[in-house]
Design a protein around this nucleic acid. Structure first.
Lengths: 150, 150
DNA sequence: ATGCCATTAGATACAAGGTATCAATAGACA
DNA sequence: TGTCTATTGATACCTTGTATCTAATGGCAT
């Protein structure tokens, strides 16, 4: 998430973004925001729930995740096995380099993919409107460990 | 699906691929293969089921789709809304140009995407192992209709 | 500080899509 | 034809998510 807010913590920035969108700041949302802020990696709805008091209803978690995705505060991440995860989003269109080993994720912005897609689509007479891309592999740290183990 | 079999029909080719993998040719699988062969576009498990006698168990459909994906006879297609569909696969790695208007799908093979991904990943110290890409837009036919309507 | 009222929460039921289990069946091959 | 294993269908179950509804609560005007 790009820091463009007055607030200091990530959790506060999440809440602030919601308020800008006309959503109220409520106790459950504050708890959710705090829980999301302390996630190191991409997370699932149910995984997040396990970091929250069970008094916080399941529907509330799913509802809030949904509005956070719509507000571009978090984004969906599709894992190789088809599992849907979430993570804090860099605003705007971007892709993820997902480490299949440690679960970390780097964002890929302003890469050349879009250009290649545009020209490739054009060759097929295809009018591009969107795309979904996830990249899997090993981050530099895990790749280094892997080479050392060889 | 690339035609590399003696068999004439697509359905027969599907069965043959399964037999090569050590799977038996059974009545349910023959019915499934025939139903898949006559799908024009990508389809869902449940959609396929509606083309089959209800005596064919639900678990059998899901089980068979799973082994067909593993055998690379069909491939998964992720729609823009997150729905998981299937379609006959061109063997090997490829991507889909999915028309959001008519639901048709063109395969994209041997494009430059992989090269761009490789060099982009390398710049991030990322060791690429795989990726998932779906491209959404309008096929040439639907794009032409759209322009005419403007 | 208080009251009002729309928004939100939690409970619950439901739905889609898929998997585990298991007894019964049916291919394949001798 | 018989045997034996793979496969089937039924069933129950699970996960992930949504719809509905009443109670609670946040934000704002007063």
């Amino acid at each position: 998430m790009v820091v463009t807010k007055r607030s200091t913590t990530v959790a506060e920035q999440i809440l602030e973004t919601l308020e800008e969108r006309g959503f109220r700041s409520t106790a459950p949302r504050r708890a959710l925001a705090a829980a999301i802020a302390e996630q190191d990696h991409h997370f699932t709805a149910e995984g997040l729930r396990s970091h929250l008091p069970s008094s916080l209803g399941r529907a509330t978690v799913y509802r809030t995740l949904k509005i956070l995705v719509e507000a571009d505060v978090i984004c969906r991440v599709l894992l190789e096995d088809g599992d849907l995860h979430y993570q804090l989003s860099n605003q705007g269109h971007h892709h993820h380099l997902l480490c299949v080993h440690c679960g970390s994720s780097q964002d890929l912005m302003g890469c050349d993919i879009e250009d290649v897609l545009l020209s490739t689509s054009a060759r097929h007479g295809f009018e591009l409107s969107g795309h979904w891309l996830e990249v899997y592999g090993r981050c530099s740290a895990c790749a280094a460990v892997g080479r050392a183990a060889d």
